[in-house]
Simulated assay, not measured.
Amino acid sequence: MHDAPSTAELVEAVKRFIDDTASPQLTGHAAFHARVASNVLATILRELEQRPGAEADEKDRLIALLGADADTPLDALNRELCKRIRSGNMDLSTDGLLDHLKTTTIAQLSVDQPRYSGLALALQSRG
């Protein structure tokens, strides 16, 4: 049986090439673009690693918060949450809403901006 490299392994290999081989030989705009490419690949790696679990957790929280069926897709749950907030049926006094919003935001920042100083503080306060 042939085992192909995983998507994460392929992305990591390209990132290592950029970081270890290409970038040290570049200057100016090319060096800047190599850093941007490396950062994009790092984000993709975090997406592959963290997003599935974060979305599963988010869905579980929304099902409980909204009293929804377990087979409801995540995007539909989020649309329903937005609808209830816009209509005034839910607000920050709704039990569990603020925790859900904070937890979801922390998960998103962990993927998009893991070095954001506010994220470290939020993680520390949740510890």
Rank of each mutant, 00 (worst) to 15 (best):
A4L: 13
P5L: 08
S6L: 08
T7W: 08
T7V: 13
E9S: 11
F17V: 05
D19E: 14
D19I: 06
P24H: 07
T27D: 10
G28L: 08
A30C: 05
A31S: 06
H33S: 13
A34Q: 05
S38P: 01
N39G: 14
N39V: 03
V40F: 13
T43G: 08
L45E: 07
L48M: 12
E49W: 03
Q50M: 11
R51S: 13
P52F: 09
P52C: 09
E55F: 06
L62Q: 04
I63E: 05
I63N: 01
G67N: 03
G67E: 04
D69C: 04
D69V: 06
D71Q: 12
D71I: 08
T72I: 05
P73W: 01
A76N: 06
L77H: 02
L77I: 00
E80P: 01
C82V: 15
R84P: 06
I85A: 03
G88A: 08
G88Q: 07
N89C: 01
N89E: 15
D91Q: 04
L92A: 07
L97K: 02
L97T: 01
L98R: 05
D99E: 14
H100K: 03
T103W: 09
T104S: 15
T104A: 15
T105W: 12
L109T: 07
D112C: 09
Q113M: 14
Q113R: 15
P114L: 02
R115M: 12
Y116L: 14
A120R: 11
L121P: 06
L121F: 12
L121A: 15
A122N: 04
A122G: 10
Q124N: 07
Q124K: 15
Q124H: 15
